[in-house]
């Protein structure tokens, strides 16, 4: 395993709109690692995800983020994606009028061009698409439909995983991808994620449920509370949280600040 971290988040402070949400968050992931982030509603998990992918409406007020040693916060959203950052959104948007397959090919080719790889023509892309769709058990007819339009909650999440598989990112953030999934979909999504685990890729898995971590076994578990990491541990921390809730950590964190 490489000795340099893939991503380093140092003392990050950020506002959502005008409101300070992240208050000195520090986190490092090395290639090959999978970390889980848990934490109460409103603690800033989605804010962290959105800040990392450069969503408008969030303002970084302090700290830094290095991705492969480069200043991530200076890059616009598309550059971050092309450099290998991917967020599976907690609430995927519906885009009427843009066909899924057309969108996916455009995205794949934008990223391939950035990496100096040749663009895929319609046929090569279809081959790749079919292979990845099998992994997430999505029927082919969904590809001709508009992005997420009329998709069920679970189908939207599977579509996010499909995008992740196609875009081949090196740092993946999954924001509650397990929420609202039935047992089968949870297995499908977890398989997709496990498929992506590799020595040169890192993943940040945001979840409220220990159950997901039975499928995707994390190297580290962090608890986010009030905009910073209040506690970190191994996968057994998730079990402890399941049992005791967040109260005891928030008390400790509150006492420390």
């Amino acid at each position: 395993m490489s000795k340099t971290p893939l991503i380093q988040i140092r003392n990050l402070h950020a506002n959502a709109g005008e409101t300070p949400i992240l208050r000195g968050l520090t986190l490092e992931l090395f290639p090959g690692e999978v970390h889980a982030i848990m934490g109460p509603n409103g603690s800033g998990k989605s804010t962290l995800s959105n800040v990392l992918v450069g969503r408008p409406g969030y303002e970084v007020t302090g700290g830094e983020v290095l991705f492969r040693g480069k200043n991530l916060l200076e890059m616009d959203a598309e550059t971050r994606a092309r450099e290998g950052i991917f967020l599976a959104f907690q609430y995927p948007v519906e885009i009427p009028g843009v066909a899924n397959n057309y969108f996916l090919r455009t995205a794949v080719n934008a990223i391939r061009s950035h990496r100096g790889q040749p663009r895929l023509d319609a046929i090569d892309f279809l081959t790749l698409l079919r292979e990845k769709m099998k992994l997430v058990e999505m029927p082919e007819e969904m590809m001709a439909r508009a992005i997420n339009e009329g998709f069920s909650g679970g189908e939207k999440k599977r579509n996010e995983i499909l995008q992740m598989l196609l875009l081949d990112p090196s740092f993946c953030i999954l924001d509650e991808t397990d929420s609202g999934l039935d047992i089968d979909a949870l297995r499908i999504v977890s398989n997709g994620v496990n498929q992506m685990r590799s020595p040169d890729r890192a993943m940040l898995v945001i979840t409220h449920y220990q159950r997901l971590l039975d499928y995707i076994v994390p190297d580290r578990v962090h608890v986010l509370s009030k905009g910073r990491i209040a506690r970190s541990g191994g996968k057994e921390l998730a079990l402890e949280l399941e049992e005791k809730g967040y109260g005891w950590i928030e008390d400790e964190a509150g006492g420390a600040s």
């Binding site: 992918v53 450069g54 969503r55 408008p56 616009d76 959203a77 598309e78 971050r80 994606a81 092309r82 967020l87 959104f89 995927p92 948007v93 885009i95 969108f103 455009t106 995205a107 934008a110 990223i111 950035h114 995008q163 875009l167």
Partner: peptide, 11 residues
């Protein structure tokens, strides 16, 4: 929608 497309690498 615009942000979503950019977050997938589309300029």
């Amino acid at each position: 929608a615009l942000f979503f497309l950019r977050a997938r690498g589309i300029g």
